[in-house]
Amino acid sequence: MQANQPAFFKQGPKPLTRVLIFSALSLALIFGDANYQWLGLARDKLSLALYPLQWLATTPINAVIEGGDFLQQQAQLVSENKALNNDKLAAKGMAMRLQALEIENANLRSLSIARESTPRRSQLTKILYNSRDPFAAKLVLDKGQQNQISAGQIVLDASGVVGQIVRVQPLTSEVRLLSDRNHMVPVIVARNQLRTVVYGTGRHAPLEVRNMAQNVDVQVGDQLLTSGIDSIYPAGLPVARVTRVERTTGNAFARIYSEPLAKIDQHRYFLILDAPTAPPPYPTEASAPKAKTK
């Protein structure tokens, strides 16, 4: 009977069987991806296959924006050019002072034991698109393994830290933004060198400084800079500005909210800093000579 069935009736396994198989497969994928990161290679290959689509989705819009730039008015360009020239003069003056300061700083450093913090090289990159995933604050950039990007590199814009690269694929990479939930950055308060950590609380939500005593010396308007303690973020990059400090009696800690300085939503180009040099090993034994015992 089975053999005589016309091909039209043969449909393979029933939908229920199929959904059970594929649900089991998806659960295995979820488990494998969340716990063991086995699937990096498969993800890389698939992302390579997706790249033409990603390119196609973003390029026409960029072309329209760039076309608009092309048709900008002459007068606007001239005035902008003037302003830029003035800025350049001012910047040159600053740069001359900076050179002198750098030499002086190098001298001072050579006197002290502190290791020289060499400036890192950086690469320019463009936002490909904003991830559709509402659970995490992430961006997808258009540089990947082919441009020697690796996970852990820092992403900046002109005004501050944007985030950190968390996943790299052959042609694209993902940035976890400062505002992603529980993203921590070790910072110092620029005004009084107070050391602390700033936490992200979610996309479009303010950053938070936690576990600081009620009487802590932080004021609205204080700038937070990276402290460089974690050896991931180089020291001295602007991160955020304090926007609100709540000291309610009854809470053990003050609630300090701040706003990222980087203008993540306003432009499309970022800088990726090269990976940090390895920090010196953590001292396993006391390096000071032991106190003499009698």
Binding site: L25, S26, A28, L29, D33, A34, L39, S47, R132, D133
Partner: peptide, 14 residues
């Protein structure tokens, strides 16, 4: 494409 956990959309879509 979204860079989230592999299998999340797959399970929901199936």
């Amino acid at each position: 494409a979204n860079g989230n956990i592999l299998g999340q959309h797959a399970l929901a879509y199936s």
